[in-house]
């Protein structure tokens, strides 16, 4: 080591420790403040869900007094909740399943069959940049012409198509790094075709990337609003998101009821996030974000 650097290091060690301590305190202060700011609206909605209009209007921050529990049974009754909850789960999980399979196949091809990413990759991921509004009306016309408007298949196919780009983007990046070429070569030399290789080697090795994509796609569909608003005018096949929005009602405004509805809507999303968060972060860290 260069003696000059060594000397400098020793000389500044004392002040370093002191500075570190202040930095740590500052760091935690910032983190705690930002976390509080982040969860405040969430906590407030929880508070509102157990109160009625009068309580919310007169004392926005007071604890429920008396505790109103009636909001929840009311939500379940008036938002046709079980039905729409089921619909939302169905849309989200079917979309995830189909998108994962389709996108993983494309990603396999793009990452392992081609020398460079090339135009095909660009073509697919261009979809990330295409705002849904630009294709909303023709999509509506297309689903109409296919006779799929106001049907579950109609909204599903739209969700699948619009989520492909993101999934292909993440999975291609992931497979390029996360699935070693040697393993694929070994299986092919052993006499497996690409299809078996895909199912036996590529998919299992891409688990983390798939979990990342699955979580994002699931949440994306769960929270989707615009397509549902346009394509699903039949209440029987509506999503939960849409029916909670309908709770807002133009002629009655029950803030407690609405808060309860919002709570019901966000709880599954939060649970899914908590359940998968390690995988999501791992997937992103493992190079998935690096295209």
């Amino acid at each position: 080591m260069n003696p000059i650097t060594a000397e400098r290091k020793e000389a500044s060690l004392g002040s370093f420790v002191f500075r570190d301590r202040i930095m740590t305190i500052l760091r935690y202060a910032v983190l705690i403040c930002s976390s509080l700011a982040t969860i405040f609206p969430f906590l407030w909605i929880v508070l509102c869900a157990f109160r009625d209009n009068t309580q919310i209007y007169t004392m926005p921050f007071a604890l429920p007094d008396p505790l109103i529990l009636a909001n929840f049974p009311k939500v379940f009754k008036s938002a046709n909740l079980f039905n729409t909850l089921l619909n939302s789960f169905l849309y989200a999980s079917v979309t995830v399943a189909v998108v994962i399979v389709l996108a993983a196949m494309v990603a396999f091809f793009l990452s392992k069959f081609l020398k460079k990413q090339g135009w095909l990759f660009t073509y697919f991921i261009a979809g990330i940049l295409i705002p849904v509004q630009a294709i909303l009306i023709p999509l509506f016309v297309t689903t109409r012409d296919l006779g799929l408007i106001n049907t579950m298949q109609g909204i599903l196919i739209v969700y699948i198509a619009t989520n492909l780009s993101f999934a292909i983007f993440v999975l291609t990046g992931f497979m390029r790094k996360g699935v070693p070429d040697e393993m694929i070569e070994a299986t092919i030399i052993d006499g497996c075709g690409p299809i078996r290789c895909f199912f036996m080697v590529v998919l299992p090795l891409s688990q983390t990337g798939i979990a990342t994509v699955a979580t994002f796609v699931f949440l994306g569909v769960w929270n989707e609003f615009l397509f549902a608003l346009i394509l699903l005018t039949d209440p029987a096949i509506r999503t939960l998101n849409l029916s909670i929005f309908m709770l807002r009602g133009q002629y009655s405004s029950d803030q407690g009821l609405m808060s309860a509805g919002v709570l019901v809507l966000i709880t599954p999303a939060i649970l899914i996030y908590i359940f998968f968060q390690e995988k999501v972060v791992q997937g992103l860290t493992a190079g998935a974000v690096k295209g």
């Binding site: 982040t38 969860i39 949440l219 809507l265 966000i266």
Partner: peptide, 17 residues
């Protein structure tokens, strides 16, 4: 986890809040 929490919420729900 807290930093990411709002991301998973439906924008519609956040707007209503």
């Amino acid at each position: 986890a807290m930093a990411f929490l709002p991301v998973v919420l439906a924008p519609a729900a956040v707007a209503l809040m």
